[in-house]
């Protein structure tokens, strides 16, 4: 039980507990803020997995971008004056049973599958340099395509959202 393990359990608990709150609270705003903690937890997990750049990206994009977007969405689609921003639920019982079974199945699958673990020979200090090199060599095409995709998403989201002219 070293620091690594402690940190893992810490982040794992943060992640799962906040995720559990995310999917169970009725208040949408609460969910959004618990989601913030979930993302933080996941970012910490990334760090533990030697993906420091990814952790930063996780915080920047998810927390700084997506989460803000979601909050905007929540606020735009609910009357602010109505303090009780709640959401209804459906399929609670069958969903609970199904998800319980699914979770059990997945967890047991993860545990009992004989994973071939082959640790990296050496773990580099930082991943930024390698990631950057890969992005503009092996994954250049995908990189460019993602750029275009983002542009399209930007324009598309804008045009969809302001379709109130007619």
């Amino acid at each position: 039980m070293n620091y690594y393990d402690i940190l893992f359990y810490l982040f794992a608990i943060i992640t799962l507990v906040s995720a559990g709150f995310v999917v169970t609270t009725r208040n949408v705003i609460y969910s959004a803020f618990f989601l913030l903690f979930t993302f933080f937890g996941v970012a910490g997990i990334y760090v533990l997995l030697a993906a420091d750049f990814l952790a930063v990206v996780q915080i920047m994009v998810y927390v700084g971008g997506i989460l803000i977007l979601l909050l905007f969405g929540v606020m735009l689609t609910n009357k602010i004056t109505n303090v009780d921003i709640r959401t209804g639920t459906s399929n609670l019982l069958p969903a609970s049973i199904a998800i319980g079974l699914l979770m059990g199945a997945l967890v047991s699958a993860m545990i009992y599958t004989g994973w071939k673990v082959q640790p990296a020979s050496e773990i580099p200090d930082t991943s930024i340099k390698n990631l950057g090199a890969l992005l503009i060599t092996d994954y250049l095409l995908i990189f460019e395509l993602l750029g275009i995709l983002l542009l399209i998403a930007l324009i598309g989201a804008a045009s969809i959202a302001r379709r109130d002219k007619e």
Partner: peptide, 20 residues
């Protein structure tokens, strides 16, 4: 961890009525 997180995500998708 990821399996539990996944299950929770599915649960959220299935049970919440709010699109957000």
């Amino acid at each position: 961890l990821s399996a539990i997180l996944f299950s929770l995500g599915v649960y959220g998708i299935v049970t919440r009525k709010n699109a957000v």
